[in-house]
Design a protein around this nucleic acid. Structure first.
Length: 258
DNA sequence: ATGGCAATGTTTCATTGA
């Protein structure tokens, strides 16, 4: 099996002990991280190497930052998108693996509030992301696109769809932008293997949201059809949300036939 | 309707997250 993980760690340095324990216990082949919250200089490259992983990273002071950790070395293809827009946020890194697929790790903008400047930036980011995919890949290629999309794809992915109706992460505009992004030719691997509602990947730190399972599924693993056909399971590691100093996101893990 | 929690840097508050 090829095990691919996406996890918003909410500061890689603050989560370093947990990350090392996760690598040990999951034995994942590829771990895509978002919200490193550190510059490249402060990325814990040595400790990750000591844990048996290579690291392709694209950091930023205080905010954002993405990385792909891997058992085998990868080739970095792109940081962010190779378009003409000016990006001051480190939100995407794409690598070529030696397992015959390319892998993009994305941290989609939060969007803050519907109608805000940041909301427009979020929709535009996804539009630029689709154009980026179209420039470099075809749906018949082997491509995995994972990350914190900051959008719950449909109401099964929301603990209280009525309360969240037309709120940030669930709005019609965001869902349309996400559907347009994946219309490149991407499939939500979780929905290949599991149709059930209530599979969440994020729970607010506040209000005892995790014990009450008041969550959202916003951390997603997409792939092109050839790989989706080889997807055998997609699970959320809820244990990672328990105990001392968890991230507010849990890792999402997909297993593909080799 | 509001805030509640956590991390970072601008640090004992402001900003951002979702």
């Amino acid at each position: 099996m090829i095990k691919v993980v996406t996890w918003n760690v909410n500061s890689v340095n603050s989560r370093l002990d947990r990350l090392k324990a996760f690598l040990e216990r999951s034995a994942a082949d590829y771990v895509c991280l978002q919200e490193l919250k550190c510059s490249d200089e402060k990325f814990p490259e040595k400790e990750i190497r000591d844990a048996g992983y290579h690291a392709a990273f694209f950091g930023q002071k205080a905010y954002n930052g993405v990385a792909v950790l891997s058992r085998k070395p990868v080739e970095i293809l792109y940081k962010n998108f190779d378009d003409q827009s000016s990006d001051d946020a480190a939100r995407a890194i794409t690598v070529r693996t030696s397992d015959k697929f390319d892998l993009m790790c994305a941290y989609v903008p939060n969007g803050q509030a519907i109608g805000s400047e940041k909301y427009a930036y979020k929709l535009d980011w996804l539009k630029r992301g689709k154009a980026f995919l179209q420039r470099h890949w075809k749906p018949s290629d082997a491509l995995v696109v994972v990350g914190d999309f900051n959008i719950a794809p449909d109401d099964r992915d929301v603990y209280d769809p009525v309360a969240w109706k037309e709120h940030i992460h669930c709005s019609t505009g965001e869902r349309a932008a996400l559907n347009d992004f994946i219309s490149f030719g991407l499939i939500d691997t979780l929905r290949v293997v599991d149709q059930s509602p209530g599979v969440f990947s994020w729970w607010d730190y506040r209000e005892l949201s995790f014990p009450r399972n008041k969550g959202l599924r916003i951390d997603l693993i997409y792939s092109t059809p050839s790989l989706a056909a080889r997807c055998r399971s997609v699970t959320v590691d809820r244990d990672e949300r328990r105990g001392e100093k968890p991230s507010d996101h849990a890792p999402v893990i997909a297993n593909f036939d080799p």
